[in-house]
Design a binder for these strands. Structure first.
Length: 388
RNA sequence: GGCGCCGUCGCCAAGUGGUAAGGCAGAGGUCUGCAAAACCUCCACCCCCGGUUCAAAUCCGGGCGGCGCCUCCA
């Protein structure tokens, strides 16, 4: 299998998972080994050469950190402390300074090699990000650079050094770093092997919408410990939201209530304030649940009219424009485990049984459907079904 | 050793000076053929010890506990 086919598999899997989670499709999936990108990297090395930021050693090109006084600002590095760090001397490469990093690695026997002007070899581990980001999103500065907190140093620091050293302009206006995702108290990482894929989660009987909810339930700058228990709790919380929305269908009184409009307004204000506060999604969800309780209460008290419903739906649509979790859930509901016609036929059968007060038969229908992943709920307005 | 993060109810999780949001689970009740859903009621002196302040989960100091980065995995 050639390199391209190999990596295609992962790109396809990523796209599929992203779709399941309701992520917007990305415009670009740049590959470091595409010619246009290798050329951009070689050009960046050339620019760094001209600015005096590089040196060569054993056929590799290195970035000379002493030429960039700003180096380390993002990670708030203490240069003196770094020099006396315990592990730098483990490095076997021919660098002038322990902090220097490789831009372009010399060819090694048996490894792929390219030459676009920086000499025969392959890209260093940071160069591709700077070169591809500026090629696709430039000119600098780009607006936002995101990533995991573990990448602040050295990866992002080195991206800054390369980009700013080559262009003379700031690299990114904003840096957004997310804390780690843990699995059973351990950092989730490929090298530890403690990763779950979206297909793994689905195979366990959970839904991607629950994963999305779980990720929204904590602030992005706090680590989140994934457990199957918390995923189940996320599932239940999300269900409360969707159950509420489906209750709206049964509202039949005419008219609208000003106090309901006021409630909606207060929730929208609180939601927006929470999001404006460094994307506090957990607090934003809190505002939604407070609204749900107030509105459920109003429904029970017969104090909601059909005239209120559009405004409520609109508010939830606006919330979900931001959170994008209800849309994922709706897409999942489009694909019930049993054909909709069959569910509706069985509901009719059950109604017939209930009318003749054959509750055993009626319960049997409900239990059978439940065993197949569909739950029934009776109310004055009729019987609703939903996925388990 | 250097830099940084975290410790809030059984579980998840907001709250960074004014007396503890929200969700899940649980208990009791209302409704229901039964369920489910929903509603009502109940359920936290915020890891510990000092300090500052009229007032501290929030600020300061010191502990204890957990974690991340300081590796050519990107």
């Amino acid at each position: 299998m050639d390199l391209r086919s190999y990596t295609d598999q992962y790109i396809a899997a990523f796209r599929e998972d992203a779709r399941a989670l309701g992520l917007e499709q990305v415009e670009e999936n740049p590959r470091a080994t595409d010619e246009c990108n290798l050329q951009a990297m070689a050009d960046m090395v050339g620019a760094l050469d001209r600015q005096g930021h590089t040196y060569r050693s054993d056929g590799s090109v290195y970035f000379k950190i002493s030429t960039l006084p700003e180096y380390g600002r993002l990670a708030r590095l203490d240069h003196e402390g770094m020099k006396s760090g315990a592990r730098v001397d483990a490095d076997s490469y021919a660098k002038e300074d322990a902090r220097d990093f490789v831009l372009w690695k010399a060819t090694k026997p048996g490894e792929p090699t390219w030459d676009f002007g920086a000499g025969p070899g392959r890209p260093g581990w940071h160069l591709e990000c700077s070169a591809m980001a500026l090629r696709l999103l430039g000119p600098p500065p780009i607006d936002i650079h995101a990533g995991g907190i573990d990448l602040v140093f050295p990866h992002h620091e080195n991206e800054i050094a390369q980009s700013e050293g080559a262009t003379g302009h700031p690299f990114s206006r904003f840096w957004v770093h997310v804390e780690h995702l843990f699995v059973d108290e351990q950092k989730m990482s490929k090298s530890l092997g403690n990763t779950y894929t979206i297909p793994d989660i689905v195979a366990r009987g959970h839904r991607p919408s629950a994963v999305r909810y779980l990720l929204l339930s904590a602030h992005y700058r706090k680590s989140l410990n994934f457990t199957w228990v918390s995923l189940g709790q996320a599932e239940e919380a999300l269900r409360r939201l969707t159950d509420f929305l489906s209750r709206l269908d049964a509202v039949s009184r005419p008219g609208a209530r000003p106090d309901i409009a006021a409630r909606i307004d207060a929730a929208r204000t609180a939601f927006a304030a929470a999001m404006r506060d460094d994307l506090n999604t957990a607090a934003a969800l809190g505002a939604i649940f407070e609204l749900v309780r107030a509105l459920n209460s109003a429904i029970d008290a017969g104090e909601m009219g059909t005239g209120d419903v559009p405004a409520i739906r609109d508010a939830f649509d606006r919330f979900d424009d931001v959170l994008g979790v209800l849309a994922v859930r709706r897409a999942e509901e489009q694909m019930p485990p049993i054909p909709v016609e069959e569910i509706e036929r069985l509901i009719e059968d059950r109604h017939a049984a209930r009318r003749r007060r054959d509750f055993a038969a009626a319960d049997r229908v409900r239990d059978d459907l439940a065993a197949r992943g569909v739950l029934l709920e009776d109310s004055a307005a009729g019987t609703k079904w939903k996925r388990k």
